[in-house]
Amino acid sequence: MALEIIESCVNCYACEPLCPNQAIYQASPHFLIDADKCTECIGDFLDAQCASICPIEGAILTELGEPINPPGSLTGISLELLAKYQAAVEATYQAALAAKSA
């Protein structure tokens, strides 16, 4: 039974000092959870601490691979708006790449 931090983590350190089991550690390219130490905070807190302060939707998964904070749950930004934003970011990124290689 353990949670997992995935690549959308922005390395903000917020979760690391909160873990009652010192299961979270800094790694590259992002923080990780030691599955052997993680208890999902059961017995210590009502809610998993890392997932309760993490500002990035989808960055922390349950053991079943489901996001504890699904898209829209923290920022209030709807899925539709989020998709639009991500498409625009991707388009600009690709354009910048194309301009660089040209």
């Binding site: 922005v10 390395n11 903000c12 350190y13 917020a14 302060i53 500002p55 990035i56 923290l74 920022t75 209030g76």
Partner: peptide
């Protein structure tokens, strides 16, 4: 100081 303890609607942590 990268960590934050609140979310503001004018801020994007990414």
């Amino acid at each position: 100081a990268p960590a934050c303890n609140i979310q503001c609607h004018y801020c994007n942590r990414k």
